[in-house]
Design a protein around this nucleic acid. Sequence first.
DNA 1: GGAAACTAGTTTCATATGATACGAGTTCGC
DNA 2: GCGAACTCGTATCATATGAAACTAGTTTCC
Lengths: 165, 165
Amino acid sequence: MKPEPASGAADEGELKLDAYLPYRLSVASNAVSGLIARAYQDRFGLTVPQWRLICVLAEDGGLTQGQLVARTVMDKVTVSRAAQGLLNRHLVARSEHQADGRSHVLALTPEGSGLHAEIAPLALAYEAALISGLAPEEVALLKRLLTRLQSAAGQLSGDPGSPTV
Amino acid sequence: MKPEPASGAADEGELKLDAYLPYRLSVASNAVSGLIARAYQDRFGLTVPQWRLICVLAEDGGLTQGQLVARTVMDKVTVSRAAQGLLNRHLVARSEHQADGRSHVLALTPEGSGLHAEIAPLALAYEAALISGLAPEEVALLKRLLTRLQSAAGQLSGDPGSPTV
DNA sequence: GGAAACTAGTTTCATATGATACGAGTTCGC
DNA sequence: GCGAACTCGTATCATATGAAACTAGTTTCC
């Protein structure tokens, strides 16, 4: 494969780790994820996957694990384990799926809803703190660019499960 | 803690996972990292930490592991293991550190340099493919914003090791 | 000069992750 | 109907990660 860095590549053919986008993305994401993960873990004993399930269930009501997998972009094993944890703490409840005996429908219990209501403001406060000092347009652009990258990565890896936006 | 989403928060007090920046960042980063990690692993048998060490050593010559830790933002255990792997494959060599008997100085061997020269173009091509379709200013802004987020996360977590740019 | 406090790097351990195999249920094709 | 092919969720395994303990070497300070 002939390398031909197209538009916008760092500085012309030079590979500098500090300027390398995948590296920068990973480092920034780790910093942010670590912060958030610690906060949820320390204060509420939740893992990030568990918190994501709670969020989605709070938004969308009763879903199967398969739907949660699609919705959260996490592995089905991760979702299974997170769901198990939440079940043990009675934050979500399972009910039989009408049409499919293999599947269950998950929904937040009142406790789960309560916890979500408690954490959500904190989560938003964290986001606000992270982007404080950025202009709203910058944040919007950032989100668009992230989606682009995700989609490009999906295309390159041949995976279909990526936004084609 | 009173939640008070400041400037630029998604849409007013609503928490939607899809619009939540830490989530978006994590998903995008995972997609990109996964792509890159698979490429290095499949074609060259390198892990991402190993590749990062190679990059930094190619840029900066002989460094101690401590310097590598600082330079790559990775854990010292991760660096230790990555270095071990590279040593086993004779891609880097160790020499005694003059002033400090605990430390060794790591540098690429000719083979290591050769591998770097082989991979670097591929790495740049990946980056180029990822950002193809983005304007150069957008890419530059993206990198700046990522640095900002990383730095903000560092501040919030009380860690010093973050760019104060 | 030598004990206490410190630092570089490794080892150990506990946990997290995802690929793979599996068990149970479903759908398709005949 | 009933077996083959498939899908949902779980269990198993192999690997990756980082926290904490540890070893060996260094600095500090009396």
